[in-house]
């Protein structure tokens, strides 16, 4: 399993629009991608679960990638977070 931490800089957090983009991105990969915050976690491929984490600006999330080409996928996801969140 590969994982990384990321602190959200987007002023409204993981709101609907970036959450939608994130789901689209995550669905490109076979690997399982989980986003965790304060002990709660959500599948990055599920929009509502992701939004119900209520991730806000300044929150740090842990993104874990398992299976598939996890190294590459984790790097791609990290890139996505930096660009969009």
């Amino acid at each position: 399993m590969k994982s990384f931490n990321y602190t959200i800089t987007d002023p409204v957090g993981i709101h609907a629009r970036p959450a939608g983009l994130l789901v689209k991105e995550a669905k490109l990969y076979d690997a399982s991608i989980m986003i965790a915050k304060d002990g709660k976690s959500a599948d990055a491929k599920k929009l509502m679960a992701l939004m119900s984490l209520g991730v806000k600006q300044g929150d740090t999330v842990t993104v874990s990638v398992e299976g598939g080409d996890e190294g590459t996928v984790a790097a791609k996801m990290e890139d996505f977070f930096k660009k969009n969140l």
Binding site: A16, K46, L47, A49
Partner: peptide, 16 residues
Amino acid sequence: AEIFNVHSMMLEDDDY
């Protein structure tokens, strides 16, 4: 307008 794209995605949500 983006909200309607988000609505579409919500409707495609696996859990839902």
